[in-house]
Protein backbone atom coordinates (compact mmCIF):
# COMPACT_ATOMS: atom_id res chain seq x y z
CA UNK A 1 0.00 0.00 0.00
CA UNK A 2 2.97 2.30 -0.13
CA UNK A 3 2.36 4.50 -3.11
CA UNK A 4 4.99 6.37 -4.92
CA UNK A 5 5.12 8.84 -7.68
CA UNK A 6 6.10 7.63 -11.13
CA UNK A 7 9.27 9.63 -11.37
CA UNK A 8 11.32 9.58 -14.50
CA UNK A 9 14.87 10.29 -13.41
CA UNK A 10 17.46 11.70 -15.73
CA UNK A 11 14.99 12.29 -18.49
CA UNK A 12 16.43 12.30 -21.99
CA UNK A 13 19.74 11.44 -20.41
CA UNK A 14 20.03 14.84 -18.76
CA UNK A 15 21.15 14.24 -15.20
CA UNK A 16 19.35 17.16 -13.50
CA UNK A 17 16.07 16.78 -15.36
CA UNK A 18 13.36 14.60 -13.86
CA UNK A 19 9.67 14.31 -14.45
CA UNK A 20 6.84 13.22 -12.19
CA UNK A 21 4.95 11.51 -14.98
CA UNK A 22 1.64 11.55 -13.11
CA UNK A 23 1.85 15.32 -12.89
CA UNK A 24 2.57 15.56 -16.57
CA UNK A 25 -0.34 13.25 -17.35
CA UNK A 26 -2.72 15.19 -15.14
CA UNK A 27 -1.61 18.53 -16.53
CA UNK A 28 -2.34 17.16 -19.94
CA UNK A 29 -5.72 15.80 -18.89
CA UNK A 30 -6.71 19.06 -17.19
CA UNK A 31 -5.58 21.13 -20.15
CA UNK A 32 -7.40 18.84 -22.53
CA UNK A 33 -10.65 19.05 -20.55
CA UNK A 34 -10.46 22.81 -20.30
CA UNK A 35 -9.70 23.08 -23.99
CA UNK A 36 -12.51 20.74 -25.00
CA UNK A 37 -14.98 22.56 -22.74
CA UNK A 38 -13.87 25.91 -24.08
CA UNK A 39 -14.15 24.84 -27.68
CA UNK A 40 -17.42 22.98 -27.13
CA UNK A 41 -18.93 26.07 -25.54
CA UNK A 42 -17.97 28.30 -28.41
CA UNK A 43 -19.05 26.11 -31.30
CA UNK A 44 -22.29 27.21 -32.88
CA UNK A 45 -22.13 30.57 -31.23
CA UNK A 46 -25.21 32.65 -31.65
CA UNK A 47 -26.17 36.15 -30.89
CA UNK A 48 -28.94 34.81 -28.70
CA UNK A 49 -26.88 32.62 -26.38
CA UNK A 50 -28.15 29.17 -25.51
CA UNK A 51 -27.18 26.61 -22.89
CA UNK A 52 -23.47 26.12 -22.60
CA UNK A 53 -22.60 29.37 -24.32
CA UNK A 54 -24.62 31.14 -21.65
CA UNK A 55 -22.52 29.48 -18.97
CA UNK A 56 -19.27 30.49 -20.66
CA UNK A 57 -20.49 34.06 -20.98
CA UNK A 58 -21.38 34.02 -17.31
CA UNK A 59 -17.81 32.82 -16.62
CA UNK A 60 -16.41 35.66 -18.67
CA UNK A 61 -18.55 38.15 -16.79
CA UNK A 62 -17.43 36.58 -13.52
CA UNK A 63 -13.73 37.01 -14.39
CA UNK A 64 -14.50 40.48 -15.74
CA UNK A 65 -15.97 41.27 -12.34
CA UNK A 66 -12.81 40.06 -10.60
CA UNK A 67 -10.61 42.16 -12.87
CA UNK A 68 -12.96 45.12 -12.70
CA UNK A 69 -12.80 45.19 -8.92
CA UNK A 70 -9.02 45.65 -9.06
CA UNK A 71 -8.28 47.90 -12.01
CA UNK A 72 -10.08 49.89 -14.62
CA UNK A 73 -11.33 47.96 -17.58
CA UNK A 74 -9.10 49.65 -20.15
CA UNK A 75 -5.99 47.98 -18.73
CA UNK A 76 -7.89 45.06 -17.28
CA UNK A 77 -9.19 43.69 -20.57
CA UNK A 78 -5.63 42.72 -21.42
CA UNK A 79 -5.68 40.13 -18.62
CA UNK A 80 -9.08 38.63 -19.32
CA UNK A 81 -7.79 35.62 -21.30
CA UNK A 82 -5.13 35.00 -18.64
CA UNK A 83 -7.69 35.18 -15.82
CA UNK A 84 -10.15 32.96 -17.65
CA UNK A 85 -7.57 30.33 -18.49
CA UNK A 86 -6.09 30.37 -14.98
CA UNK A 87 -9.50 30.01 -13.41
CA UNK A 88 -10.69 27.24 -15.73
CA UNK A 89 -7.42 25.32 -15.54
CA UNK A 90 -7.07 25.52 -11.76
CA UNK A 91 -10.70 24.71 -11.13
CA UNK A 92 -10.66 21.68 -13.41
CA UNK A 93 -7.35 20.57 -11.91
CA UNK A 94 -8.78 20.81 -8.40
CA UNK A 95 -11.84 18.85 -9.44
CA UNK A 96 -9.80 16.04 -10.97
CA UNK A 97 -8.47 15.08 -7.53
CA UNK A 98 -11.86 15.37 -5.87
CA UNK A 99 -13.52 12.99 -8.28
CA UNK A 100 -11.01 10.24 -7.74
CA UNK A 101 -7.42 9.33 -7.10
CA UNK A 102 -6.13 6.65 -9.41
CA UNK A 103 -3.39 4.21 -8.52
CA UNK A 104 -1.70 1.90 -10.97
CA UNK A 105 0.41 -0.77 -9.30
CA UNK A 106 2.16 1.08 -6.53
CA UNK A 107 2.26 4.36 -8.29
CA UNK A 108 -0.14 7.24 -7.94
CA UNK A 109 -1.16 8.35 -11.40
CA UNK A 110 -4.46 10.15 -11.13
CA UNK A 111 -4.64 13.15 -8.79
CA UNK A 112 -4.95 16.90 -8.87
CA UNK A 113 -1.96 18.43 -10.59
CA UNK A 114 -2.46 21.34 -8.21
CA UNK A 115 -1.78 19.03 -5.24
CA UNK A 116 1.89 19.33 -6.12
CA UNK A 117 3.83 22.30 -4.76
CA UNK A 118 6.11 22.41 -7.77
CA UNK A 119 3.23 22.99 -10.10
CA UNK A 120 1.41 25.60 -8.04
CA UNK A 121 4.69 27.41 -7.47
CA UNK A 122 5.31 27.35 -11.20
CA UNK A 123 1.95 29.00 -11.77
CA UNK A 124 2.59 31.52 -9.00
CA UNK A 125 6.05 32.41 -10.32
CA UNK A 126 4.63 32.73 -13.79
CA UNK A 127 1.90 35.08 -12.54
CA UNK A 128 4.30 37.23 -10.50
CA UNK A 129 6.72 37.37 -13.43
CA UNK A 130 3.87 38.51 -15.64
CA UNK A 131 2.99 41.28 -13.17
CA UNK A 132 6.58 42.54 -13.37
CA UNK A 133 6.58 42.22 -17.13
CA UNK A 134 3.34 44.17 -17.54
CA UNK A 135 4.44 46.65 -14.88
CA UNK A 136 7.46 47.54 -17.00
CA UNK A 137 5.55 47.35 -20.25
CA UNK A 138 2.56 49.49 -19.30
CA UNK A 139 4.16 52.04 -16.97
CA UNK A 140 7.72 52.19 -18.22
CA UNK A 141 10.93 51.17 -16.47
CA UNK A 142 11.39 54.23 -14.27
CA UNK A 143 7.79 54.28 -13.04
CA UNK A 144 8.08 50.57 -12.38
CA UNK A 145 11.25 51.02 -10.33
CA UNK A 146 9.76 53.92 -8.41
CA UNK A 147 6.97 51.61 -7.38
CA UNK A 148 9.44 49.94 -5.00
CA UNK A 149 10.23 53.12 -3.08
CA UNK A 150 6.68 54.34 -2.70
CA UNK A 151 5.37 55.74 -0.49
CA UNK A 152 8.68 55.88 1.43
CA UNK A 153 12.21 54.88 0.30
CA UNK A 154 12.99 52.82 3.40
CA UNK A 155 10.19 50.43 2.43
CA UNK A 156 12.37 49.09 -0.38
CA UNK A 157 13.53 45.92 1.45
CA UNK A 158 9.99 45.15 2.51
CA UNK A 159 8.74 45.64 -1.01
CA UNK A 160 11.33 43.20 -2.30
CA UNK A 161 10.51 40.67 0.40
CA UNK A 162 6.83 41.18 -0.41
CA UNK A 163 7.38 40.06 -3.98
CA UNK A 164 8.85 36.76 -2.81
CA UNK A 165 6.34 36.22 -0.06
CA UNK A 166 3.52 36.95 -2.49
CA UNK A 167 4.84 34.32 -4.83
CA UNK A 168 5.30 31.82 -2.05
CA UNK A 169 1.87 32.34 -0.49
CA UNK A 170 0.10 32.41 -3.83
CA UNK A 171 1.54 29.05 -4.83
CA UNK A 172 1.50 27.31 -1.46
CA UNK A 173 -2.02 28.40 -0.53
CA UNK A 174 -3.40 26.59 -3.54
CA UNK A 175 -1.16 23.58 -3.02
CA UNK A 176 -1.96 23.36 0.70
CA UNK A 177 -5.70 23.47 0.25
CA UNK A 178 -5.86 20.92 -2.51
CA UNK A 179 -3.25 18.64 -1.00
CA UNK A 180 -5.03 18.66 2.36
CA UNK A 181 -8.28 17.83 0.64
CA UNK A 182 -6.70 14.88 -1.09
CA UNK A 183 -5.04 13.66 2.10
CA UNK A 184 -8.33 13.54 3.91
CA UNK A 185 -10.02 11.87 0.96
CA UNK A 186 -7.31 9.20 0.78
CA UNK A 187 -7.52 8.69 4.55
CA UNK A 188 -11.23 8.12 4.17
CA UNK A 189 -10.64 5.75 1.28
CA UNK A 190 -8.11 3.91 3.46
CA UNK A 191 -10.72 3.63 6.17
CA UNK A 192 -13.37 2.47 3.76
CA UNK A 193 -11.19 -0.33 2.38
CA UNK A 194 -10.21 -1.76 5.78
CA UNK A 195 -13.52 -3.39 6.69
CA UNK A 196 -17.24 -3.43 6.03
CA UNK A 197 -17.90 -1.31 9.09
CA UNK A 198 -15.20 1.07 8.04
CA UNK A 199 -16.86 1.36 4.66
CA UNK A 200 -20.17 2.26 6.28
CA UNK A 201 -18.45 4.73 8.57
CA UNK A 202 -16.49 6.36 5.80
CA UNK A 203 -19.27 6.78 3.27
CA UNK A 204 -21.05 9.75 4.81
CA UNK A 205 -17.94 11.79 5.74
CA UNK A 206 -16.55 11.06 2.31
CA UNK A 207 -19.60 12.45 0.53
CA UNK A 208 -19.53 15.49 2.79
CA UNK A 209 -15.82 16.01 2.25
CA UNK A 210 -16.10 15.65 -1.51
CA UNK A 211 -18.76 18.33 -1.49
CA UNK A 212 -16.57 20.51 0.64
CA UNK A 213 -13.56 19.85 -1.58
CA UNK A 214 -15.56 20.93 -4.60
CA UNK A 215 -16.34 24.14 -2.79
CA UNK A 216 -12.68 24.56 -1.77
CA UNK A 217 -11.60 23.86 -5.33
CA UNK A 218 -13.84 26.63 -6.60
CA UNK A 219 -12.84 29.06 -3.87
CA UNK A 220 -9.13 28.43 -4.39
CA UNK A 221 -9.39 28.93 -8.14
CA UNK A 222 -11.28 32.15 -7.45
CA UNK A 223 -8.71 33.31 -4.88
CA UNK A 224 -5.82 32.51 -7.18
CA UNK A 225 -7.28 34.58 -9.99
CA UNK A 226 -8.34 37.33 -7.60
CA UNK A 227 -4.83 37.62 -6.11
CA UNK A 228 -3.30 37.47 -9.56
CA UNK A 229 -5.35 40.51 -10.50
CA UNK A 230 -4.59 42.24 -7.19
CA UNK A 231 -0.84 41.84 -7.71
CA UNK A 232 -1.23 42.83 -11.32
CA UNK A 233 -3.09 45.98 -10.39
CA UNK A 234 -0.34 46.89 -7.87
CA UNK A 235 2.06 46.92 -10.78
CA UNK A 236 0.00 48.42 -13.57
CA UNK A 237 -2.45 50.81 -11.90
CA UNK A 238 -1.64 54.38 -10.99
CA UNK A 239 -3.72 54.58 -7.85
CA UNK A 240 -1.70 52.01 -5.90
Amino acid sequence: MDHESPIWEQAFGIPWLSFNLSNVLMMFVASLIVFILGVAATRNMQRNPKGFQNFMEWLIDFIKGIIGSNMDWRTGRLFLPLGLTLFAYIFISNMLGVVTNGIVGHELWWKSPTADPGITMTLAVMVISLTHYYGVKLKGGSEYSKGFIRPLPFLLPFKIIEEFSNTLTLGLRLYGNIYAGEILLSLLVGLATTSFLGFLGATLPMIAWMGFSTFIGFIQAFIFVMLTMVYMSHKVSDDH
Binding site: H3, E4, S5, I7, W8, A11, W16, L17, S18, F19, N20, N23, V24, N101, I103, L108, K111, A115, D116, P117, G118, M121, Y179, E182, I183, S186, V189
Partner: peptide, 10 residues
Protein backbone atom coordinates in the same frame (compact mmCIF):
# COMPACT_ATOMS: atom_id res chain seq x y z
CA UNK B 1 -1.90 7.41 -1.57
CA UNK B 2 -0.29 10.77 -1.65
CA UNK B 3 3.07 12.05 -0.74
CA UNK B 4 4.74 15.19 -1.79
CA UNK B 5 7.27 13.86 -4.19
CA UNK B 6 9.52 16.86 -4.04
CA UNK B 7 10.24 19.33 -6.72
CA UNK B 8 10.76 17.97 -10.16
CA UNK B 9 12.25 20.50 -12.52
CA UNK B 10 10.67 18.72 -15.47
Amino acid sequence: ALGAAGFQLG
